[in-house]
């Protein structure tokens, strides 16, 4: 089986202001807040980079354990997510460390701006993941299941260690893991994505299958 890790760099995906405001905890924003978001976005924009690395894997699951050939992952929820898939993509994405600097800088001198940079970072990394998945779908002419990250459902964060090793994350895109299994830069993601051949697969939109009911970010 081939397991080469491919690295991709993207241009900035389109920015969704509404989504960033949602991450800032703002369901309805007045003009001052929107203005501040725009000022922060302008300061961050040129400093962001959009990098992804990924590997395509064989996938099999018995409902309990997902077998990716050289990597076994125990998770019922991931198994459910990947059910019926014979291949999967394991990827990691990051928008780089500069957003962390901005969050740290303003965390000390303007927490409002820090909150805005935090929200912009969250919007950016999600947009990058979406862009990558779209790109792969088109490139390989496949359909993809919703992406599934460590920490979702019963998929333990501990699996980050294996993911980091398989994707060679520090070297490939500069993403590192700290002792608490958090990724640095903080606006980074790792995820499994099941590949389904049938384009007509009935894929539910994100958030629908999540069992967390009290999430302030839940999309309905």
């Amino acid at each position: 089986m081939n397991s080469v890790v491919i690295t991709k760099t993207y241009d900035a995906p389109p920015f969704c202001e509404k989504e960033a405001l949602r991450y800032a905890g703002c369901k309805k924003a007045d003009e001052n807040v929107i203005e501040l978001l725009r000022v922060c976005k302008a300061e961050a924009w040129e400093k962001l980079s959009y990098k992804v690395c990924y590997v395509e894997l064989d996938a099999a699951t018995d409902g309990e354990i997902c077998d990716f050939g050289f990597l076994n992952v125990k998770s019922r929820d991931l198994s459910k997510n990947l059910f019926g898939c014979e291949r999967a993509i394991l990827f990691s994405a990051t928008v780089g460390i500069e957003i962390d600097r901005l969050i740290a800088k303003y965390g000390r001198i303007s927490p409002t701006k820090a909150l805005m940079f935090q929200a912009i970072g969250a919007e950016r990394i999600e947009a990058l993941c979406d862009t990558f998945c779209e790109d792969i779908k088109n490139e390989k002419d496949i359909a993809l299941r919703p992406r599934f990250s460590p920490g979702y459902g019963d998929l333990e964060l501990l699996v980050q260690k294996d993911i980091s090793a398989v994707l060679n994350l520090p070297k490939k895109i500069g993403v590192t893991l700290n002792d608490s299994l958090l990724l640095s830069p903080s606006k980074s993601v790792t995820a499994f994505v099941g590949i389904t051949q049938g384009k007509d697969d009935n894929i539910p939109p994100k958030c629908v299958n999540c069992e967390k009911k009290d999430c302030m970010f839940k999309e309905v």
Partner: peptide
């Protein structure tokens, strides 16, 4: 009032 509004006032 949402979080950003609260924080702007606090600042």
């Amino acid at each position: 009032v949402y979080l950003p509004g609260l924080l702007m006032s606090a600042e």
